[in-house]
């Protein structure tokens, strides 16, 4: 079985990689803390027994924020070379939202836009 070929890394490059990784780690920690905080806020809002019409949009908004943080910081969508993934995910979301909207309007509610 063949071995994967490996090239030696220069000292300078090693330092650069280390610096980048520290930066990456910091960003991940910050976004992780932010996400935990958002989760607590969401739980708190529900626990405080506020009006549902007030809580639901806020919770959905925070969920959306979490999704963005997740995609960009944990799943590396902010990094270079992810343009196609972004395009595909946005197209997929567009289709999914279109499907769900049509489902709600023409399967369950009927034809509300007469």
């Amino acid at each position: 079985m063949a071995e994967i070929k490996q090239e030696a890394i220069s000292q300078k490059k090693l330092e650069y990689i280390r610096r980048e990784r520290t930066k990456e780690m910091r960003q991940q920690m910050v976004s992780f803390a932010l996400m935990i905080f958002l989760t607590f806020v969401a739980f708190g809002l529900v626990a405080m027994d506020l009006d549902a019409s007030f809580v639901i949009p806020i919770v959905i908004g925070m969920a959306f924020l979490q999704v963005i943080l997740q995609f960009y910081y944990f799943m590396h969508m902010k990094d270079k070379g992810h343009e196609y993934i972004k395009l595909m995910m946005l197209t997929g979301m567009f289709f999914a939202i279109a499907f769900v909207t049509t489902f709600i309007y023409i399967v369950w509610i009927g034809a509300p836009i007469e």
Binding site: A98, I106, A111
Partner: peptide, 21 residues
């Protein structure tokens, strides 16, 4: 390819989706 996703209900015109749909 893009339009292909926006037209599926034309197989279901007689299902009764309503005139708008």
């Amino acid at each position: 390819g893009f339009f292909g996703f926006m037209v599926w209900a034309h197989h279901m015109f007689t299902v009764g989706l309503g005139p708008t749909a």
